[in-house]
Nucleic acid binder design. Structure first.
Length: 321
DNA sequence: AAAGTCTTCAACCGCACGACT
DNA sequence: AAGTCGTGCGGTTGAAGACTT
């Protein structure tokens, strides 16, 4: 027996909300509050599904919402919180006044993910790509490592070639005295250099991957890098090939180098698994580990004795008690 | 200027959970 | 205990605008 739908789909309007609909909903909620979303559209004279009304209110019409660009501080907070709780947007949004889970999710997917990738950091694990490769390589036999490198090369080759080629061409054009228009000769040069870049780039990628794999990472006890019980704020020491990596404030256009943000390196994240999700092991209020079931409101994440990522609960705007 | 591609973000969908009966 | 209901959540979609060719 399935549950009945929240509304008659044939009789409800979908898509963009009009200012008139917004007014109707806002003024109804101002008068009657937000009890029983199923009845709200009917009573407010809207041909909308209750769920749609709730979404419109919580994500757009609520008077306490902040519209517009995310600040650098907000971005730092999002990435830092994401490294702890993963894709739990409502938890993250709860720490950012005036932002909704939808806002945070959209901003993450459209901007922050790319930013991190651009910095050489895997946005899922919050580890540097090269470190991931090194970490995997330590658990594989050499033939498997070679296969992995080949596979990785296949996956990223096109994208990397595109980026590297573009950069190189731009650089060459700059070097050639700023002649920006491509005449026949320069077009030929472009094409030949493109080929040259392609070959050269593959070699460079191969070398980079090999280095990443061969290099022994100086990491915290490798037997249980994700262990939540022994959580410390130990900083991860990256091999030389990835030195300089950090969620540096300057990388996000902020000079606040002393921020806890810049210390969050991802590799010691005690709470995430390989997909950025939380482990079930969290301490309950009695200090007992509770395994398996994730805590939906996340309160135990931020209030547990376990210090996560230099993120003391005092720093949190909404401790979600 | 037009066509094609990319990016953004509001809105939708289905699922899960807790409260209630 | 089982079913129903209201709500919250995270993933996905698609329209619209921005950008590139």
């Amino acid at each position: 027996m399935g549950r009945i739908p929240c509304c008659e789909k044939d009789n409800v309007k979908r898509g963009q909300w009009t200012p008139e609909e917004d007014n109707k909903l806002s003024s109804y909620i101002a008068q009657h509050g937000t009890r029983n979303w199923r009845l709200i559209p009917k009573n407010a004279g809207l041909q909308r599904c209750g769920k749609s009304c709730r979404l419109r209110w919580t994500n757009y019409l609520r008077p306490d919402l902040k519209h517009g660009q995310f600040t650098v501080d907000e971005e730092h907070a999002i990435v830092k919180l994401h490294s702890v709780v993963g894709n739990r947007w409502s938890l993250i949004a709860a720490q950012l006044p005036g932002r909704t889970d939808n806002d945070v999710k959209n901003h993450w997917n459209t901007k922050l993910k790319k930013k991190l990738s651009g910095m050489g950091i895997d946005p899922v694990t919050h580890k540097p790509f090269s470190h991931l490769m090194a970490e995997i390589a330590t658990t594989l036999a050499p033939p498997q490592v070679a296969n992995l490198a080949e596979a990785a090369l296949g996956c990223f080759k096109d994208e990397m070639l595109h980026l590297l080629t573009k950069k190189r061409i731009d650089f060459q054009l700059q070097q050639s005295g700023g002649t920006s228009s491509l005449n026949d000769n320069s077009a030929a040069a472009y094409n030949s250099s493109k080929q040259e870049v392609k070959d050269d780039t593959i070699d460079r990628i191969r070398m980079g991957l090999s280095r990443a794999i061969i290099q022994e990472p100086e990491i915290i006890p490798s037997d249980k890098p994700w262990d939540s019980t022994g959580a410390t704020s130990t900083s991860f020491v990256f091999p030389a090939s990835v030195s300089g990596f950090h969620y540096g404030a300057s990388s996000f256009g902020n000079e606040n180098n002393g921020s806890p943000w810049s210390q969050c390196t991802g590799s010691t994240c005690p709470a995430g698994d390989e997909r950025g999700h939380l482990h079930g092991k969290l301490k309950d209020e009695n200090g007992e580990e509770s395994e398996g079931k994730e805590v939906r409101d996340g309160s135990s994440i931020f209030n547990s004795d376990c210090v996560l990522w230099d993120l003391p609960s005092d720093d949190l705007i909404n401790p979600m008690v």
